[in-house]
């Protein structure tokens, strides 16, 4: 079967595809913005971005480093988290979380700074959560 498209038909498909894609992106962005701080940290498709002290924005993961990276997750064993005594206000480095980020080429893990993750009892909070960013 031979199907022929004229140029206006092709244009229609392209425009439809663009509208569909951009609508889906807006919907996903809105999904992230509707999440609470704890739920945003958990989502591997959303990233909790630090704006200023105690102010955050939950946005759609914007690149391959952020996509699939969870800023907080369940850890049933305590062997995965090790203390980093060098920085007094830094959270313990979660080496498994770091590995899940840096296993991807061009991605760099940055530890939480003055941020208190759910389930932890911290003396300092309100800072930047753990991030997986492009180098």
């Amino acid at each position: 079967m031979l199907i022929m498209f004229n140029s206006s038909t092709v244009q229609y498909f392209i425009v439809t595809l663009i509208i569909f894609c951009s609508t889906q992106t807006l919907a996903e962005e809105a999904d992230c913005q509707s999440l609470s701080e704890a739920h945003c940290l958990t989502s591997s498709q959303c990233t909790l971005n630090y704006i200023s002290e105690n102010t955050y924005s939950c946005d759609m993961a914007k690149n391959t480093c952020e996509q699939g990276f969870t800023q907080w997750t369940l850890f049933p064993t305590d062997t995965l988290i090790e203390n980093n005594s060098a920085k007094s206000h830094s959270a313990p480095i979660n080496y498994e979380q770091m590995k899940s980020c840096e296993i991807k080429a061009g991605c760099k893990y940055s530890n939480a700074e003055g941020y208190c993750e759910p389930g932890f009892n911290c003396s300092v909070t309100g800072g930047k959560p753990a991030m997986c960013e492009m180098e």
Partner: peptide, 25 residues
């Protein structure tokens, strides 16, 4: 809303948000 199966060092997880916003791991 739900996410694909994610492999973690301790096992596998699906994040599932229920109809009232509750988040199931």
């Amino acid at each position: 809303k739900y996410e694909p199966i994610k492999v973690e060092p301790w096992g596998k997880v699906i994040y599932l948000w229920g109809p009232s916003g509750e988040l199931w791991h």
